[in-house]
């Protein structure tokens, strides 16, 4: 990764060509440097608008002011799943196309996904206390999100357990894909096991059951948090590439010092 200065073919017209061009870490770093401020700025602006809309939206006639937790809880829960899908796509990128940045993407997405999942669990717990009268229930949706959190932690543990980045990348990619195949099964079996959480109310075939005055702020907040996630992911990838460069340079300088001492 350290000094991969190959001249990528200039076929930047197709999508795959563009992805190949990004395999050069220097080019990726330049792109990330320009993208991060813009993405971050847009994320903050959208989030500010979303929060303003959320706080001027009417309160729920049953739940009162606690319904405002929804505007952060639901995006967190969506992003917990979105981030895992992102990691599964990166895992395919590692295993099928051997794209050198895919494993960086996978490794740096795992802690962010775990953080969003933990936030979804925490805000859900805070919301559940006044609504259901308890911090935690062993309900199907909560339990499956909790299992997702455990899987995130397992992937993080595996990526940190090996020294060689190439090998840990392939191991983490296989584990991510096996987990991705398992998620529907876990979801189904946990549904069989117990259900208390309200069923899906936004993505349905017969249209959302949630009122539009609550739906719009929710969607804007979701967009804002998605932009936050992408910004954080780009920053984490940048940091990971720098970290690998520093390690490579340290090895080089150690080797040079050894040669000089002889």
């Amino acid at each position: 990764m350290g000094s991969g200065m190959t001249n990528a073919t200039p076929q930047a017209s197709t999508l795959s060509g563009r992805l190949t061009a990004l395999a050069n870490p220097t080019r990726f770093l330049a792109l990330a440097d320009t993208l991060v401020p813009w993405l971050g700025g847009t994320a903050l602006a959208v989030l500010a608008a979303g929060f303003y809309m959320a706080f001027t939206a009417p309160e729920d006639y049953q739940q009162g002011i606690t319904v405002r937790i929804m505007y952060i809880h639901v995006p967190f829960a969506w992003l917990a799943m979105f981030c895992y899908s992102l990691m599964a796509a990166s895992a395919l990128g590692t295993l099928v196309w051997k794209h050198p940045l895919a494993d960086v993407a996978l490794k740096s997405a795992a802690p962010i996904g775990a953080a969003f999942t933990a936030l979804a669990l925490f805000t859900g717990s805070v919301w559940g206390k006044p609504m259901w009268g308890t911090w935690w229930v062993w309900d199907a949706r909560l339990t499956s999100v909790f299992i997702l959190f455990l899987m995130y932690l397992g992937i993080i543990a595996l990526t940190r357990a090996m020294d060689d980045p190439g090998r840990s990348a392939r191991a983490a990619a296989i584990l991510t894909l096996v987990g991705f195949v398992n998620i529907p099964i876990i979801k189904f079996s946990v549904d069989w096991w117990n259900t208390l959480h309200q069923p899906a109310s936004v993505f349905r075939l017969d249209g959302p059951t949630i009122h539009t005055s609550l739906l719009w702020p929710l969607l804007v907040c979701a967009l804002g948090f998605t932009l936050v996630l992408l910004t954080l992911h780009l920053m984490a990838m940048r940091a990971e590439i720098w970290r690998r460069r520093v390690i490579a340079m340290r090895r080089l300088s150690a080797r040079a010092a050894e040669r000089a001492a002889r």
Binding site: I147, G154, N182, S189
Partner: peptide, 8 residues
């Protein structure tokens, strides 16, 4: 790694 996957 294995325990969450064995829950079903």
């Amino acid at each position: 790694l294995v325990l969450p996957l064995t829950i079903p």
